[in-house]
């Protein structure tokens, strides 16, 4: 039995348990609607198109937020690595920012960016910036001095060493940082959409709650989980396929 199979078995078991508890009437069917009802809600929301629309909107927000995060965090990590003196000014401030949960900044974000897309993207950015920045920065810092020295023995210039050695050696950490960052984006998004939104999976859940459609709440939660999982799994597979050395992270030769 491989690991994938065992994981699937457990999920099927959970579904069966859920089905049994709900159908047998042992639990309040309003609080825990049967999987069958959640499935029906899924059909209903698919037929009227709301499910797909909300999923797409959420995914697009994550992608925008992620692109902004990556285009800020990666260059900053490089600049701070290459100019440690500069970083020493920012270090304390960064530690301060890092310890603030992004949700705490929501009132400010709404004040500054309004309740439209910008404030959501800003929240996603806040939630994913540090994982990407720190993994990249640490990845660069942990590049073995010995391997850079090897570059010296090949008479490489400063920039050649950055391009041919530093970046390729730090790449595994950078990719891990980006992957984690993406996961953080996805989680932050739902928070953002619950605060102020008129679309997206987070909104769909909140809206369903107000309409007392607990089945749709369940549907939304399952969708978030499934999509998060599918994206993570696909990205991981893709990364391991394109970058074979990623699957042996930690093997230094």
């Amino acid at each position: 039995m491989n690991s994938f199979f065992r994981q699937t078995v457990f999920i099927i078991f959970l579904f069966a348990l859920w089905f049994f508890l709900a159908e047998s009437g042992m639990v309040n069917s309003y609080l825990v609607p049967s999987p069958a009802r959640v499935f029906e809600a899924g059909v209903e929301m698919t037929v009227n198109g709301k499910l797909q629309t909300n999923i797409m909107i959420s995914i697009m927000r994550v992608i925008y937020g992620f692109i902004i995060t990556a285009s800020a965090a990666l260059p900053l990590a490089f600049i701070f690595y290459l100019f440690p003196l500069l970083y020493s000014y920012f270090r304390g401030f960064f530690a301060f920012l890092k310890s603030i949960p992004p949700l705490a900044a929501v009132p400010l974000l709404i004040l500054w960016f309004g309740i439209d897309e910008a404030s959501k993207i800003a929240l996603i950015f806040l939630a994913s910036f540090f994982p990407v920045f720190l993994d990249t920065f640490n990845g660069l810092s942990q590049v073995d001095k010995k391997i850079l020295e090897m570059g010296d023995t090949l008479d490489l210039t400063y920039f050649e060493k950055i391009y041919y050695i530093l970046i390729p050696e730090a790449l595994p950490s950078i990719i891990t940082g980006l992957r984690l960052g993406f996961a953080y984006c996805w989680r932050a998004l739902i928070g953002a959409e619950m605060i102020a939104a008129s679309s997206g999976l987070g909104y769909m859940i909140l809206d369903a709650e107000e309409m007392a459609r607990i089945d749709i709440v369940y549907l939304g939660i399952i969708c978030i989980g499934v999509f998060g999982l599918v994206i993570e799994f696909t990205v991981l597979r893709l990364v391991n396929r394109v970058f074979p050395w990623m699957s042996c992270e930690g093997t230094h030769k």
Binding site: K146, I147, G151, T153, D155, Y164, L171, W245
Partner: peptide
């Protein structure tokens, strides 16, 4: 004088193939 150095450890770049590791010396 053009030198070539071999250390006690290979000091290869882990994300590059053998070919690309060699290319480094000829960049």
């Amino acid at each position: 004088v053009k030198t070539g150095t071999i250390f006690q450890e290979p000091r290869l770049i882990r994300t590059k193939t053998v070919e690309k590791n060699l290319k480094l010396a000829l960049c």
